[in-house]
Design a protein around this nucleic acid. Structure first.
Lengths: 242, 242
DNA sequence: CGATCAATAATGTATAGATAAAAAAGCTGG
DNA sequence: CCAGCTTTTTTATCTATACATTATTGATCG
């Protein structure tokens, strides 16, 4: 047997307190709205100082599992649902996870002059960019075509990077800190160019992911990824953060 | 003028410390890998106790912005990329945000006997479920067809709920606490049934979202949503949590 | 009866100190 | 020069205490 359930793991006290309360909530023993013991009570219950209890409970409050109010006490939060931690594995990991060999090929790499885009009411100015079009393969069959703009004002190092063998995505993630990102996900029909690159027929469904990344107000990069619909999907798993 | 930049907001000391360090990282002044001052140094810098500094830094470490090691000190984390806080607005809000009128119609509502599914190597038993097929409209044109299973063992209240006018999604989110969810997103071609329901031609690209929600080990609900590819897309915005 | 004001109970913040643990840095003996 | 030990730096945890903040409770007064 694997012993994959080490039972009560947490080494430190506040982690143990936290884990026990968390377990009681997630098991359904404590329902949303239920009142939890006061810090003073738990302090006696675990025979430790109030600060230790506080650390545990503050951490639970930070993740949104419980609601705390002065004088009114602590209660189980009602599920907020619409926010959780999301993980999207990158393309390479995704392909290799299926046991396929990953391949990358840049088909275009050029400089683009500054331009303006209009988002809603405000026009936004974008500086000079490096444009890279690349194709990603799984076992020699093309799976993804990616058009990426990297804005050189915001990412100066990008001018010298070599994207002939390394995809720009991982490079950016390793070199550039970002503060915000937006994804747009849609299903589209393959246009002639896409169809030729992905070796499918025109009109076949493809998954489009448009990703835009900022640091502060500055746009760092815009990526448009078109996946073959029949051989690729995104999965996102999320739960109450940490 | 609106005074929309209150400068240094945080009321409490540890929040201020936290915010300042966070700002220096997000502005790019501190790059991934850079070393941060030790707690003792910051304690002098802000003339406060070490516990206060610790609280600020521990909180930053919890969100993954910095990495802390005994003896080795604290450094800026290199961006983990694929993890952030994600928000998916529900269908109704999404449709109404475009200025369209939202419509909901249940076309099927029945009980399904217990069944087994096979995920990977392990078979998983699923109890009796209520199955609801519904169509969601934007301004009288169908946009989404949703097949939803709700497992009555895990969600007892679901047997009595009235899904003729209220979609099961929002109902579940308001009544049932969950611990984990998984989404699979793919682009598919419309099959005949789907095409008829969504009033499009067979083979047109559609966005498929399969959502599965658990509490602990128990599956609460499985939803399969098929969106018209030409009139709907998902957007997810995320940044370094909190 | 109802509004106002004071007491109270709960969490939030902060301090000062003690001890533990981990990992780097330095030092030894071969 | 390298292996193995010791020292030291730095974060991690915990205690005990103090005061601040805030929403409720209850009492007082009109």
């Amino acid at each position: 047997m694997h012993d994959h359930a080490p039972d009560t793991r947490p080494a430190t006290l506040h982690a143990r307190i936290r884990a026990e309360v968390e377990a009681r909530i997630l098991s359904g023993e404590l329902k949303p709205g239920d009142r939890l013991p006061t810090e003073t009570e738990m302090m006696a219950r675990y025979s430790c100082s109030r600060m230790t209890v506080n650390k545990a409970m503050a951490s639970l409050a930070a993740t949104g599992l419980i609601i705390r109010n002065r004088r009114a006490g602590t209660s189980v939060a009602r599920p907020k649902m619409h926010a959780g931690v999301l993980t999207i594995p990158d393309i390479r990991a995704n392909i290799e996870a299926r046991g396929a060999r990953y391949g990358y090929q840049a088909v275009l790499d050029e400089l683009r002059p500054p331009c303006c885009v209009h988002l809603g009411s405000e026009g936004h100015h974008l500086g000079q960019s490096r444009f890279v079009r690349s194709i990603h393969h799984a076992d020699d069959s093309p799976v993804l075509i990616e058009d990426r703009h990297i804005f050189l004002d915001a990412v100066p190092g990008a001018a010298e990077a070599d994207f002939r063998t390394e995809p720009p995505g991982p490079w950016l993630l390793g070199h550039v800190p970002w503060t915000e990102a937006e994804h747009r996900i849609a299903a589209i029909a393959a246009d002639p160019l896409t169809a030729r690159c992905l070796e499918i027929s025109i009109g076949m469904p493809c998954l489009l992911v448009e990703r835009r990344t900022w640091r502060g107000d500055e746009t760092l990069t815009i990526a448009k990824q078109v996946f073959r619909g029949d051989s690729f999907d995104l999965t996102a798993r999320f739960g109450p953060s940490s």
